[in-house]
Design a binder for these strands. Structure first.
Length: 335
DNA sequence: AATAACCTCAACCGCTATGAG
DNA sequence: ACTCATAGCGGTTGAGGTTAT
């Protein structure tokens, strides 16, 4: 005898759950507990397949779900566990309290894979990408060498958590404020070697930074994290900042040192630079040589949150920020 | 401002594993 | 040993949101 379907398909809703359906399901499970998914929809007054109810509860409605962004520790744990067990998402989920297998699977496919590619690691094997796979990077690197040393330096830098002020810096004189009328990309100084952070400044026209400021970061994974800083005034970058009211900062935390990194980098972004101790910085002046209207928005001198003075960013490159973007962005955004 | 392209993730599908009868 | 209901798993899809052009 053929197995009967888990539900009467013609009488069931499909697609996104409504608030009312969620409430019904929660109410029912709270009073009757989980299980008996086949009979649950009818008992709960839901025109849904039992399987759908189960999935909705497990993946979305369960009260012990964590939700929210994955932490860097979770990232690394997922990578490590995936290396051990492969695509056994449920096994991996068991090690991450409050995360579902579905959530982890999605996160893997949309974020971690990209991150691993950025690190030069094949996400399915966890081994370094074959030379053919990395040739796009290596080939584009005209005269640089593999940055084993740069990576080593970078690792040293990030083995200690640091909080670094994000101060936009032009690339020497190659990016002038006039070039900001549409969009420019500045390489930042001294993040993990200065390679894997960039600052995108979009200017809608009335001055500088009056539309939005996008800071993308990654831990040698390139462009895998992003927060947007908006500035409603015409003066600077302080109006709305991700998690600090006194400037833009990025907190770096270490990632496990066993990760194999093999990246070749174009000359302009090759050299890691330590954060120079320094006096505070006028963000506006330092960044752009321009205050826009009104008083200086950045309060002139701005200590970082870890007590180290904000560093005046030395120009790190001889190329333009757009070179940086063309080189790295085009190659890593698509993973 | 309009449109295209891209990204994310909730939800679905089909399959296997498990356990009760 | 077998059947069947159910739970669980992993791959895939597509709606909706975001970003780029």
């Amino acid at each position: 005898m053929a197995r009967s379907p888990c539900c009467e398909k013609q009488h069931t809703n499909k697609g996104a759950w409504s608030k009312e359906e969620d409430e019904r399901l929660i109410k029912y499970i709270k009073s009757h507990g989980e299980g008996c998914w086949r009979s649950l929809p009818k008992a709960a007054g839901l025109a849904r397949c039992g399987k759908s109810c189960r999935l909705r509860w497990i993946n979305y409605l369960r009260p012990d779900l964590k939700r929210g962004n994955f932490t860097r520790e979770e990232d690394e744990l997922i990578i490590r566990l995936h290396n051990e067990v492969g695509n056994k998402w449920s096994q991996i989920a068991q090690q991450l309290k409050g995360r579902t297998d579905n959530e982890i699977k999605n996160y893997w496919n949309t974020h971690i894979k990209r991150k691993l590619y950025g690190r030069g690691v094949d996400p399915s094997t966890h081994k370094p990408l074959k030379p053919a796979s990395t040739s796009a990077v290596a080939g584009a690197s005209t005269s640089s060498t593999t940055t084993a040393s740069a990576v080593a330096s970078s690792t040293n830098l990030i083995n200690k958590p640091t909080v670094i002020p994000v101060v936009p810096t032009t690339s020497g004189s190659s990016v002038s404020h006039k070039s900001l009328n549409t969009k420019s990309v500045f390489p930042l100084f001294s993040f993990n070697g200065g390679l894997d952070k960039k600052l995108v400044v979009t200017d809608s026209g009335c001055g500088f930074l009056d539309k939005k400021l996008v800071v993308t970061d990654s831990d040698c994974g390139f462009l895998d994290k992003k927060f947007v800083v908006t500035d409603s005034g015409c003066g600077g970058v302080e109006d709305s900042v991700s998690n600090t009211s006194s400037g833009v900062t990025i907190e770096e935390t270490p990632y496990p040192p066993q990760i194999n990194l093999e990246l070749s980098l174009a000359p302009p972004f090759q050299q890691p630079q330590a954060v120079a101790p320094s006096q505070g910085v006028c963000l506006c002046n330092q960044a752009l040589g321009f205050h826009g209207n009104g008083p200086c928005c950045c309060m002139n001198t701005r200590p970082t949150t870890n007590g180290v003075s904000a560093a005046a960013p030395p120009p790190t490159t001889t190329g333009t920020g757009n070179d940086f973007f063309r080189f790295f962005g085009a190659r890593f955004m698509k993973f």
